[in-house]
Every structure is written in structure tokens, then in C-alpha cells.
Design a protein around this nucleic acid. Structure first.
Lengths: 223, 223
DNA sequence: GCAAAAGTGTTAGGTATACACCCATGC
DNA sequence: GCATGGGTGTATACCTAACACTTTTGC
């Protein structure tokens, strides 16, 4: 590499990840304390880090999840790139934000030195521009639920139709009719009955379903 | 600013813009010759440039459109951030890609020293990863047509319903029934009759319509 | 008067919505 | 046997899709 002009090298490029998890009728996101005096003290923020010169943003994202969150094999997709000059009040840092989705067992059993899952409704006044990031992440998740099978990454491999409906109701903040909901997802062939049943519940056990495809499918679900 | 570690400053951050225009039943994109030996010679690529340390990516995008394309006041939205390590084979450059949309008169009268509008179907083997970028840009445009009023940025302020239909047909690569199409857009109140008529056409003049809102609205259009 | 595009309604099929009761299990 | 959530069908309203002819203009 020859002379790279100064402006070629100004930027700190970071990745931040908004990891969502769904458990007990509640949507959670993974945050950690941020302590960067003087501007950011005693606040929470999403996991983030600097993009290394030999890795893609996707790789940075996976590395951050692993190193700072102890998480492997997380479903992720790019959200948006935040580039406001003062978004980090100390330095110019452009951030490529990602969404991550984990299954309920991950959230329920999560223990980590720094990071923790907090209900999304309790998250405000986050560090940097992470309030904006959260907002955009939630809207993106809502949009994707409406026209893809992304819910599969928020549920166990085998789940009940009520659990699936609950993901939709909590994230989209609206109610669905049980019969109509089931008719819809079954008629679209996005989920199928596994033939197995819930065990050890104190009411009538539900049949367990799974998604027919392990990949993200696009279709018309709920307008 | 104190000691910024080296990895904080490795990156060249760029913006590239895929500017679409629609004229004469054809979708065009704005490109310019790329000449960066040894890897990129005699090829075309989208307009791009380096993000300056004091500007947002959005501002970079506007500046590129102005400086390298002679275009002002273009509707733009962020597309995706491309970060493959070898996407530029000479240096590590991460690119925040944008989509831009211009009206037909801009395309029809466009003259510029370097840049030109080329039909999208003729664009292949572009520089860098711009083939991927184009692909994603087209898919995004298709998606947005289906659930927003983004077509307004590809049409004159006053247009005929046939022109609007033509945007949908060309970009989505499918045909619509004329009566059903009109019923739909009129019933959704996204366009309204201006009361004026086409002039100087060699067939029956059509009434000119306009979008009811100057902003991008979200709704259900065509699945 | 001919070529070219504009404009306009109806019907049938399918999809979405609203709605209430019985069932299986644990305690 | 009671509390809890699981599971099921039908009728109606609405939306979508298919379809053909008449009108207005320029030449």
C-alpha cells in the first residue's frame, strides 16, 4: 500500500449488535454497562467493538458476540450504519449495527460477567445513539416478522403454536385470534406438527411444531 | 483526541450510490468509468467517494452526487454496508451503499463529463463488488415499491396512471391489469387527479395525477 | 377513418375476520 | 372437580383477479 491520504484513515469503524431474546412473554435485549468518562458513565449499551483490518463486519459481529457476550452461532443480520459525527461524543466512530436473535433457553440460562438480558421496555437512555439503534432494531424485527419466518430464531426448535403466536403478539404489540392465527401459519406450510407433545405442563399438553425450512423464507403473513 | 490505536484508524470508509432513473419504459442506473490499474480498468462502477472525518455518510452521499454527478436534491436512502476484505482489491475499503432516485427529466437531459445513465439490464461485470450492490439495490427498490409510495421519486410531479403502472411493471417485472391497478392506487388514496391533462400526445390525452403525500408512506400495495 | 392509448364495471373466487365451546392434563 | 391452556368450524364481509369495449386525440 502506498501513501494513503489522511482522510482515508480517519475512521474508527465499529460494529454494535442488538441481540434479542424472547422468554416468558417478554422481549429482551442484551446490554452491558458502558463506562467511558466523561460522557458515558453508569449507562447501558449494546455489545460493540472495532472492526479489525482483516475481518468483515459480519466477522466482527460474530467475534463481539463470542468475546464480549459468550455467544456462538447466533443468527445475525445487518441493521443499519450509523454515522452521525457526534454519535460517540469522544471520537468519530461509525457503527455498522446488527440484529441478533437467540432462542429462549439462551436467555433463560444466560450468565456473564458483564452482559445481561434486560426487557426491551425497560431500556432507555442508553449510551451513544443506542436508543435510536434499539428503535430501528425493534421496527426491523417487527417488519421481518410480518413477511418472513424470522420467528424461528427466537423460538426453540420445537415449540407450540401458542408460543409462536405469543412472539407475534408481543413483538408486534397486537392480538391475534387463535383459530385464525393457526389457520394462517398452517395453510402457508411454514410450520408443521412434529408429532410430539409437551410434557410436564399443568394443563392440556400442546403438540410441538417446527418450521418446515431452516432458512429464512419470504412470504405474506400479517399486514 | 489522544492516542488512537492503529486499528482504530485502519479503515477507508467510502460511500457508493446506485442512482436509478426511469424513462421510456426502462430502468437506468448512473455509472462512470473506473480506471484503477491493475485490477479495475475499462469497467464501469457507481459513483463513490471517501467519507470525510467531519461528515455523515448521508452527507458524503449528497456530496458525491453533487461533485461527481452534478446532481442536487436527490432522494436517497441507505442500502447496505459492504465490508468484504477484498471487495476493493487494492486496499481495504468498507462501503456504505445508498440508493438514489431521480425523475425522468433528469435522466433524459443528463450530460456529464464522466457519468452516464445506462439501462440496468446492460450493467454487468462492474468494478469492485458493484454487481452485488446493483443486485441488492434492485431488490430493495422492488421491495419498497410493494409497500411504500417510493415510486413518486421516479416519476414527474404530475404523471399519468399508465406511467405509474409502467414503473411497477418494469421494476417488478410483471404485468398488472389496468383496471385493477387503477382501482387499487385510487382506493388507497395515494394518488389523486390534478384536473389537468396531457398535451401534445398523438392519442387520447390522459389525466395527470400526483401523489397525495410528498413523504414516503407505508402501506400494503402489491404482494 | 385509422392508429394509439385512455378510461371504465361486473362477477366469481378466495382470503380475512369474527366468534364460543369442548378437551386433556395436573393438582 | 376445578383451573389452565389446547384445540377446533362456520358464516360473513372484504378484497383480488379476470375480463372487453368505448372514447378521445393526432395524423
Amino acid at each position: 500500500m502506498k501513501k494513503a491520504p489522511e482522510k482515508l484513515r480517519f475512521a474508527a469503524m465499529a460494529v454494535d449488535v442488538v441481540v434479542f431474546g424472547f422468554v416468558d412473554e417478554e422481549l429482551y435485549a442484551l446490554v452491558a454497562p458502558v463506562n467511558r468518562p466523561p460522557h458515558y458513565v453508569n449507562v447501558l449499551g449494546f455489545l460493540g467493538g472495532i472492526v479489525d483490518s482483516k475481518e468483515t463486519a459480519e466477522e466482527t459481529c460474530d467475534r463481539i458476540l463470542s468475546e464480549k457476550g459468550g455467544l456462538k452461532q447466533v443468527y445475525t443480520e445487518q441493521l443499519y450504519t450509523f454515522s452521525a459525527v457526534k454519535r460517540d461524543r469522544r471520537n468519530r466512530v461509525v457503527s455498522v449495527a446488527y440484529i441478533g436473535l437467540v432462542r429462549p433457553d439462551v436467555v433463560a440460562t444466560y450468565t456473564h460477567e458483564k452482559a445481561l438480558f434486560v426487557p426491551v421496555r425497560e431500556l432507555k437512555n442508553l449510551a451513544y445513539d443506542h436508543d435510536d439503534m434499539l428503535n430501528m432494531a425493534v421496527r426491523r424485527l417487527q417488519g421481518k416478522l410480518s413477511y418472513t419466518t424470522i420467528a424461528q430464531y427466537l423460538l426453540p426448535r420445537h415449540f407450540t403454536l401458542s408460543e409462536l403466536q405469543s412472539v407475534y403478539e408481543i413483538v408486534l404489540r397486537r392480538k391475534f385470534d387463535k383459530r385464525n392465527f393457526r389457520k394462517k401459519v398452517l395453510s402457508l406450510d411454514i410450520v408443521k406438527d412434529t408429532g410430539t407433545m409437551q410434557e410436564g405442563v399443568k394443563n392440556r399438553p400442546a403438540s410441538l411444531h417446527e418450521f418446515t425450512s431452516k432458512n429464512l423464507l419470504e412470504l405474506e403473513l400479517f399486514a
